[in-house]
C-alpha cells in the first residue's frame, strides 16, 4: 500500500482493483473515486453482478464456454449447424466471432493456448475433449480461430495434425488481422472476412 491519505477502506478498494488485469495504480484510484461518488444503488448492483457471475456462471460441459446453463445456449440450439466446430482460445474470442452474426456452427473453447514457456501443454487445455467431440462423426469441418500469435499458430498446427487423420477438414481463419494482433479487438468487418476467407490447413 503506497499512501494512506484516504483511510483504510479506500486503500483496500484501490488495492483490490489494482489486481485486475490491465489496471495500474492511477486507474485503480480513478475507479475507486468513481465508486465512492456513485449512488449506493449503483455500487450494490456492481457488487451483486460480480457475485452473480461467480455463483451462476460455470462452464458448458460440451463446448467449455462460460454459461449459466449446461449445455449452453449454443450447444442446446438445434438450429445451429452440427457439421462445423469453430475452435477459439477463450470466451472473449467466442464473443467477438459470435457478434459478427455470420457463423452458424458450433464452438469449442480451448481455455488457453499451448505455451511451453508457461508450462501449458495439451493436457492443460481442452484438447482431449475436442477430439472426443469429433469422434461422433457428425463434424465435417473444424475451423481453428486461435489468435495469430506464435502460440496460436503452434496450437492450430498441433490440432490440425491430430484432427486431419480423422478424415475431418481443418481450416484456419484468414487473417486480415495483423500478425501479433488479437481477435478480441478486431473489428467485425475484418473478422467476418477472416471467417469467410478461411484456408485449409
Amino acid at each position: 500500500m503506497s499512501f494512506s491519505c484516504f483511510g483504510d477502506s479506500i486503500d483496500r478498494l484501490i488495492d483490490r482493483l489494482k489486481k485486475l488485469p490491465g489496471i495500474g495504480e492511477k486507474t485503480a484510484t480513478r475507479l475507486a473515486f468513481y465508486m465512492l461518488n456513485s449512488s449506493r444503488k449503483e455500487a450494490e448492483e456492481l457488487a451483486k453482478s460480480i457475485i452473480d457471475v461467480k455463483e451462476k456462471v460455470s462452464c458448458c460441459s460440451v463446448c467449455f464456454n462460460f454459461s449459466d446453463s449446461d449445455p449452453c445456449k449454443i450447444c442446446g440450439n438445434e438450429r445451429r449447424d452440427d457439421k462445423t466446430i469453430c475452435v477459439v482460445e477463450d470466451p472473449a474470442d467466442f464473443l467477438a466471432i459470435e457478434k459478427t452474426g455470420k457463423y452458424k456452427g458450433r464452438y469449442h473453447v480451448l481455455q488457453g493456448v499451448l505455451s511451453p514457456l508457461d508450462g501449458i501443454s495439451p493436457q492443460e487445455i481442452r484438447v482431449k475433449e475436442l477430439i472426443e467431440r469429433l469422434r461422433g462423426g457428425k463434424v465435417k469441418e473444424v475451423i481453428i480461430a486461435t489468435n495469430p500469435s506464435v502460440e496460436g499458430e503452434a496450437t492450430a498446427i498441433y490440432l490440425a495434425k491430430l484432427i486431419k487423420p480423422m478424415g475431418i477438414e481443418v481450416t484456419r481463419i484468414a487473417y486480415g488481422i495483423p500478425v501479433g494482433g488479437d481477435i478480441e479487438y478486431t473489428d467485425m468487418d475484418t473478422l467476418s472476412r477472416a471467417m469467410e476467407g478461411r484456408r485449409k490447413l
Binding site: P116, L117, E153, A154, I157
Partner: peptide, 17 residues
C-alpha cells in the same frame, strides 16, 4: 519452422528460459 512443431517450440522455449 519452430512453431509448426510444438516439440521444436518447447526446445526453443527451454533455451529462452
Amino acid at each position: 519452422e519452430i512453431y509448426k512443431d510444438i516439440e521444436k517450440m518447447a526446445y526453443g522455449s527451454y533455451f529462452i528460459e
